[in-house]
Design a protein around this nucleic acid. Sequence first.
DNA 1: GCGTTTCGCTACGTAAAGTGTAGCGGTAGG
DNA 2: CCTACCGCTACACTTTACGTAGCGAAACGC
Lengths: 107, 107
Amino acid sequence: MPTPKPGRPVRGSRTGRPIMAALDLLGRRWTLRVLWELRDGPLTFRALRDACEGVSPTVLNTRLRELQDGRIVEKTEGGYGLTPGGLGLSKALRPLDSWARSWAAPS
Amino acid sequence: MPTPKPGRPVRGSRTGRPIMAALDLLGRRWTLRVLWELRDGPLTFRALRDACEGVSPTVLNTRLRELQDGRIVEKTEGGYGLTPGGLGLSKALRPLDSWARSWAAPS
DNA sequence: GCGTTTCGCTACGTAAAGTGTAGCGGTAGG
DNA sequence: CCTACCGCTACACTTTACGTAGCGAAACGC
């Protein structure tokens, strides 16, 4: 399965709308988690593995390649880090944390 | 695989932190897309299927059960709709759209 | 009543994706 | 050299997703 990109058909949408590519990409296992773990700076492959306890190196590498392909993650001196665009995505994801906390609170 | 919930261990995290449960839940295929499609109001099962062109009824039903289990989606007169909590999640996800558009724009 | 249509959803066989362990080749330090 | 990490790959296995077919229930017209 190729890396979803804006402007091209993705799984579940032939329109090529950016949001559809994003939803496809982020809806793959561990993708959101990896972005979350990288929010405070670069991590090495092995540190990232440890942060996402239980992810297999196969999938981690696949996800990293997809994210690099989408210019969201890049290799830096300190390991894998967010690109400027990836940083924007990470910020767009922040509200999730406060939502999750309110979700956890009893209704 | 059980529905991830805050306060319990989930895939990749034994801490039970709400954000981890959220990332696990949202990182399953079609989950984000379903939430996205429900943002403007309830849809019937079949309308939802059509909106997510290509999703198989098996998976759609599984995702809907998980989302209902997490009190994010509920059955209403008009089909499947967001709960108050689900509405909050939908709002927390809004920034994704504008990010995706900037992502699509050439750097 | 009786066919037709639409509904939500399940069955089930196939295909794809993710998992887990082992370990390779590379680099850096002693 | 030898040890100890590093990023990453191989590969057999399990889980998840896909796709088509179709069921039973309800809602319409006739």
